[in-house]
Amino acid sequence: MTDAAAQSHSRVLLIGFAGALAMACSQGFGRFLYTPVLPGMISDLSLKASDAGLIAAGNFAGYLLGAILAAYGWANGREKLVALGGMLATGLLLLAMAMTRAVEVFILIRFLAGMASALAMIFTSQIVIGHATAAGREDVQSLHFAGVGVGIAVSSLLVFVIGSLLHGEGASWQAEWIVGAVFVFIAFVFVARVLPSGPPRTAVATVEPPIRWRMPLVLLTIAYGLFGFGYVITATFLITIVRMADAGALVECLAWFITGSASAISLYIWRPVAKLTGHRWTFVMALAIEVVGVLASVLLPPVVGALFGGLLFGLTFMVVTAYGLQLGRQFSPHSPRRVFSFMTAAFGIGQITGPLVGGWVAQFTGNFTLPTILAATALGIAMLLMVPVARMRD
């Protein structure tokens, strides 16, 4: 390897690491820190399950709006500026969560945080994936998306350490939001220095034709929306389920840490499976395993259910997310941006509806068993819809 090639190799790897940090902040902290912090908020603020669902739905509604806004061309040439703005806003909004005790304000903050995390994720991904693709480095793309799981794992450790230091005092949830914001601000400095100004400018922009809605794409889009509904109930309430079972702070930490760690390596683990069976069957198998993990979180004994359920959930939700979008591009190769927008909308509707339904049903029944069964049912229907698609020949 020449010196120039070695420098290029190192540079792309560094870009991937910056992308992973940005994903850890915008997704692992910006979206999913709410999960381990929520039990403390419920305890100290006497939040109802329906309130917790509303706060979560506010975040996902903001994420959907941010994703839709990002689909237009207003940010061309400003990708880094928008990505960094989303990161900085994420940190400030995490900080803001510690400054109020009003449910209505929490909903507004999480809505804005959803928009910020979407913009940071989408435009950072455009930059990182653009440079990784130009360099032929698929491993850098995997590194970039592994940041989501890393952020989840780190957030679980931070929440555990803070809770231990404060001995479970009622205000510990506020400190957890503040420390999450500090993590984002520190990472922001590194990402701002390393991230390139934008993706490589090699392609000529063209107007995409309308989507041709053939049956595989229709079934995939419906399945993707059901996946959004099914995954998000566990993603939002897993640690609350553990807290209600009195499994202990260590199990709460381990459950979310295992979820994040499994998510970080999931794309690497599933890559050989995808090469052997194809993306369609991989999508089906990942959904099937996720059904088992979701059900395990409430049907097995608390400790085993939390750890085993978290493991299977972490191993699958990023895989279903990523491979679903790849399948959308395969089914409509001439309109990839339009497909991304439609699938994101379907996913977003499910993701908004999930915590609303889950929170309301949990409040009515007194626990999260029925909401989790509903989530698993949605995931199972999504899997069944995709079986005939997987059997189709192109």
Rank of each mutant, 00 (worst) to 15 (best):
Y34L: 06
A288C: 14
P302T: 05
V320M: 14
G28W: 00
L69V: 07
V207K: 05
L92S: 03
C253Q: 09
V284Y: 13
G114E: 07
S155M: 11
V12K: 03
I127W: 10
G180F: 10
M99T: 14
S261Y: 09
M41K: 08
G358D: 09
G147T: 05
D139Q: 03
V319K: 14
V191H: 01
A146F: 03
G225Y: 10
A187Q: 05
I233W: 02
D394V: 04
S8K: 04
A203W: 02
S335R: 03
L95H: 09
S46N: 13
T353A: 13
S46R: 09
A247W: 01
T316R: 11
G248R: 09
F17Y: 08
I381K: 11
T2R: 00
G62P: 00
L307D: 13
A223D: 14
T90M: 01
V387H: 07
E290H: 11
A296Y: 14
A382V: 15
F364N: 06
V319Q: 14
V189L: 12
V339L: 01
F111D: 08
A146E: 01
Q141G: 05
G16Y: 04
F106C: 02
A264E: 02
Y323G: 05
L267M: 15
L143S: 07
V361G: 01
F347E: 06
R243D: 00
L325F: 15
P272G: 12
L14I: 09
L276R: 15
G348S: 06
V184S: 07
L287W: 10
E176W: 01
D3V: 04
I349E: 13
L219Y: 12
A274S: 15
V105A: 05
M285K: 12
A57N: 06
S263R: 00
G328V: 12
I233C: 04
L312V: 11
V357P: 09
L254A: 14
D139E: 05
L54V: 08
A67L: 00
V148A: 11
S297L: 07
G170T: 11
N59R: 02
L158K: 02
A56R: 03
G58D: 01
S156R: 04
P333V: 05
S155Q: 12
A70F: 09
W74G: 08
G149Y: 06
A375Q: 14
R31S: 03
H144D: 06
K80T: 08
A57S: 15
T133M: 05
L299V: 15
P371V: 11
